[in-house]
Amino acid sequence: MNITGEFSLVVDENLAPQRLDQYLSGRDGFPSRSQLKQLLRRIELNGNPAKLSAQVSAGDRVSGVVEPPVQPDCIPEPLRAEILYEDDDVVVVNKPPGMVVHPAHGNPDHTLLNGLLGHVSGLQERFQQAGDGYAAESAAVRPGIVHRLDKDTSGVLIAAKHPAAHALLSQQFADRQVGKLYLAVVKGRPRNPEGELQSRILRDPRNRKRFCAGTTGGKPAVTRYRTVASAEFGRQLVSLASLYPMTGRTHQLRVHMQWIGCPILGDPLYGRRSAAMSDGLMLHATVLELQLPNGKPARFYAPLPEHWQQLLTAFNDASAHQGSAVHPEDRDWCAAQLRSLSADREPAAQ
């Protein structure tokens, strides 16, 4: 969620002294250092007016006002994502890799939001008329968007058709009541076949497009993982891993897998784009489990992209020889996914 309006922060006691603009831009939801100059209407340090070049230290109080950026017009387009489920409150899609969720700098159109506006009649108008309550301002410029996936991450994503549904779904995400399972192909094999990764995630001071894992600063992040199978592919050892994010930090899964020495294949930020992985980032949001606005519990599965089939075949063959080293549920799931990819499926909505 992007920060707009008034904010008040207390600098973490473990944070090393740094510039005020560096501190703010490193926090989730705040704009970049260059954007801060344009969007900050007021900034105070310990109750006094301050410049962005001021030094902040542990215990300092930082407050101010961030103006929302000017949003580009979002034009309705055909929805180019497979619809997994739809009712009067929500639409659930299987987002393809390469699709941005909503317009932003460098991606003004052909986003999921463009498609939602074309698919759900009156969506924009319902959110613009939302009034007070639950961050209607941010919802109005991104109507229906409850959560996001990175551009190159594929998989299941739910959107709301009206403000009341948006509020109910957003609260579940905020309260961590949503179950999420991702599948990833990673380089090598994790040292431990399963485990829980705990760290702080903060913006990388050397490259603001990246985040990194650390012990101080940033925000706490927890990821559980399990190795499904490993196989030789393209002259390298790769593993299929199930990832369960217990928190929702930016780039969390990509950062955590790189942190343990097993970056996700095809990741240009946290690994090397392998020639064998020319289809891009091998990360897929497979399962989403939550309560629908109508009160019914629901679990949605997003089939894997077709370009995963060759790798999945290798993992399926490898799992047959690894026996008890592979969890039975994962071995069966892997085989089921292979069958589903081989079967004829209805084409995605256009």
Rank of each mutant, 00 (worst) to 15 (best):
P108E: 13
C262Y: 06
T111A: 15
K151N: 12
A167I: 09
P245F: 04
V92K: 02
L24P: 04
P96L: 02
A318P: 09
G271E: 07
K219C: 00
E289M: 11
P78W: 02
Q198V: 07
A343C: 01
R226V: 05
C74F: 04
V186P: 04
Q124A: 14
P303R: 11
L240I: 03
L123D: 04
G248D: 02
P17V: 09
G64W: 10
Q291H: 12
P69E: 15
G261R: 08
D175F: 04
A302F: 02
L243H: 08
T153F: 13
Y244N: 09
L20N: 02
L243Y: 08
Q350F: 07
S8W: 04
I264T: 03
V287H: 10
N107H: 15
D87Q: 08
G59P: 00
K51Y: 02
A325E: 12
H327Y: 11
V222L: 03
A335K: 05
Q309M: 10
D332A: 15
D317W: 13
Y301R: 14
D73T: 13
M246L: 07
F30A: 08
Q71N: 04
G195T: 06
V156L: 05
M277L: 08
D175C: 06
T153Q: 07
V120D: 00
G5M: 09
S138F: 03
L36P: 00
T4H: 07
I75S: 15
V70R: 11
M246P: 02
Y134F: 13
V10M: 05
G131F: 10
V66L: 15
C262N: 08
Y301S: 14
G188H: 03
P297H: 03
S121D: 09
D267L: 15
A159F: 03
R339W: 05
T250K: 07
A349Y: 06
F233M: 05
P305T: 07
Q171G: 08
V10C: 06
V93L: 11
K209E: 15
Y301F: 09
D12V: 08
A184C: 08
P328W: 14
I145L: 03
M1C: 09
Q310D: 13
V146Q: 03
K296V: 12
L304M: 13
P190R: 07
I83V: 15
W333P: 00
A343S: 06
I75F: 14
R148E: 00
C212H: 04
G323T: 05
S25E: 03
P96K: 01
D267K: 15
